[in-house]
Design a protein around this nucleic acid. Structure first.
Lengths: 300, 300
DNA sequence: TTATTTAATTGTCATAAAGACAACAATATG
DNA sequence: CATATTGTTGTCTTTATGACAATTAAATAA
């Protein structure tokens, strides 16, 4: 029995929920799948699917087996691609996913140069603050806050992701410099909205965390627009230092300092990471992208 | 092409270093392996092996592929076993590995009861302080100090592994109670020898670690014998609290206390863990053993 | 309830892939 | 230089998979 073929058949039947549809994808008659899956079940001595003419359902053990088989097939796919593309020129489609703000300000400006270096790589860039499934077939390289989701993914720390409070000089002149974090509650707040809601302003005092957010005058998931609002004196904004570009240098915005520090997360280790599947580092296009991006983006 | 068969052939050729020997293990002619591996190489578009009539060597990419393939084959093997043994009675050979001291004192006394509960499980117990490769085919359940080696292994904390200094009342009467850790250097030491050498006595004072070991009067990897030495007043011993059984209760040994505490490792989180492959928890014999051992050994 | 439709299984034959065995080529070893 | 060992190649046989038609089972509609 060609076990691997049986596994691919089984897997596809589960995915499509039908022998007929799965058979169509392999361009073989459904009877082939029926037999191969039956062989597989016989060799395992357990039923994987409950067939009821009109629908196909996983048994309990089938569910467990399916998940593990999916993983195995995926890994094998990746290993094969690694070998196949070994010592070839970087080429093919490369999918990069990045945080929106980071992508707009730092990643996109680099990509022209990357394209010039590797003209045969077709870039597919998606900016989203939702986390994409690097574990599956979605993305080759991802830039994210937070850590590696599992041990097969390598995370390279690109830079600090420290959020600092800023406001325009005009705003400060008008509203005064807040001396104490609790004074902030009398100010105006400009908030970035993540997929999990706006980010509050937090402060740890004597081991306890306090929410010291000001009333909101602007909320958006668009960093650029929020920065404009801040520059025009609409309020105080907490933003990653890297996102402020030259606003601080030119004096468009000034940093406000507090003791203890104002934060947006209880996690002190906020950073931006570049993520990729370890296994795939040898795929030329992936290696080219990782090496390029780390060289250009890593700051410490 | 039966890709999986090709992978098994390839893998075995690498393991045995020879087409002929590998073929013998599958009971097929060497020509079959030759053809299958050649097919595989053709489909991958890369050479995996350097053949030189008298010897077979991996190419660079072959080495990488081989490692990944080994892992995939192993996982598939495990998934298949999980399904095959699903909803069967706990049966078959169960390999347990444990730290020597822990095994002798706590594990072995439990096993008669386990055998009575699951008479169809054939136990294969090996006691060793070397860490066994849970990742490969060696062991079903392991009891170890330290942590899980990777994300596929689950580690259940069984109990604290705090080492405390003890001596017999006669020894203390004769030599006096050491008040300060540095006084220990004038005492007599009884040491357990791990595979990495005897365990020194350490103490952290003002952030700095000091080795305050006494000259050795006895060194062994046999806990029981060392305890006998200590009871007979030969010296001071650092031993895990669990290993002392009722010696403290009966007054055979007394605990010495120091401030700051005397330790055998800079790692404060020493504990005993039960380890098993997550994937294999559904194999009845593994589940039976894990559940039984955790129920009997877990203390907090 | 019964007819109809759709999906999965089973039977039979054709085809393709892997194994068996012998012959051959290449390279160490004596 | 001869011999033994190892891997490859040629040819035939065996086995397993695919193709297509026929059959069975279940869900939907009359």
């Amino acid at each position: 029995m060609d076990q691997l073929r049986a596994l691919r058949y089984f897997s596809k039947v589960v995915e499509t929920g039908s022998f007929t549809r799965a058979a169509a994808e392999f361009s073989v008659p459904p009877s082939s799948l029926s037999r191969r899956v039956a062989d597989l079940e016989k060799s395992l001595g357990a039923d994987l699917l409950k067939r009821s003419t009109r629908s196909v359902q996983l048994t309990e053990i089938g569910q467990i087996y399916f998940e593990q088989v999916q993983d195995i097939l995926f890994q094998l796919e990746q290993s094969d691609e690694t070998v196949r593309s070994y010592q070839a020129k970087p080429t093919g489609q490369l999918r990069i996913s990045s945080l929106v703000g980071f992508g707009e300000q730092l990643l996109l400006p680099l990509l022209d140069e990357f394209k010039a270096l590797y003209p045969e790589i077709i870039l597919d860039v998606s900016l989203s603050d939702e986390l994409s499934a690097l574990g599956r077939d979605d993305v080759d390289v991802a830039i994210r806050g937070g850590y590696a989701p599992n041990e097969r993914v390598r995370a390279i720390r690109l830079m600090n992701n420290e959020f600092i409070p800023v406001a325009s000089p005009t705003y400060v002149a008008e509203m005064g410099v807040p001396e104490d974090v609790f004074e902030l509650r009398e100010h105006k707040g400009i908030y970035f909205r993540t997929p999990r809601g706006p980010t509050p302003w937090l402060c740890e005092i004597a081991g306890e965390w306090h929410d010291v957010s000001a009333p909101a005058v602007a909320v958006s998931n668009n960093n650029r627009w929020l920065a404009d609002q801040a520059i025009r004196g609409q309020g105080i904004m907490m933003a990653p230092r890297w996102s402020l570009g030259d606003y601080l240098g030119r004096g468009d915005l000034v940093e406000l300092t507090f003791d203890p520090q104002l934060r947006v997360s209880q996690n002190p280790e906020l950073a931006i990471y570049l993520l990729y599947q370890k296994q795939r580092y040898l795929v030329p296009k992936v290696k080219a992208a990782v090496d390029f991006l780390v060289a250009r983006l890593q700051r410490e």
